[in-house]
């Protein structure tokens, strides 16, 4: 049975493109998460905590173990300045 060698070129192309898409998405996602894996299965509590992390460190994935919050934490909640 003859092997369709010509089909290997598009097959290779398609495989490469799938790999390129996946790798690029992974790199982009990690770049947005300070190099850490992306969080998943987030519930309302997690989102609230990530919002708090952002207020404390300036980034959703930023972490700190300072006992005292920075001075800006007292006023940087968006609830403070939203119109009632």
């Amino acid at each position: 049975m003859p092997v369709p060698w010509e089909a290997l070129i598009p097959f290779g192309l398609v495989t490469t493109m799938f790999a390129a898409a996946g790798t690029l998405l992974n790199v982009s996602k990690r770049a947005q998460n300070q190099g850490k894996p992306v969080r998943y299965h987030l519930d309302a509590w997690d989102e609230m905590m990530m919002d708090r992390d952002k207020r404390l460190t300036g980034h959703e994935r930023g972490q700190s173990i300072n006992t005292i919050a920075p001075e800006s934490f007292a006023t940087n909640s968006k609830w403070y300045t939203e119109r009632a």
């Binding site: 708090r52 300072n66 919050a69």
Partner: peptide
């Protein structure tokens, strides 16, 4: 009050 400055992971 000085709020707690620890973020989600360490907490």
């Amino acid at each position: 009050v000085q709020e707690l400055g620890v973020t989600s992971g360490p907490l």
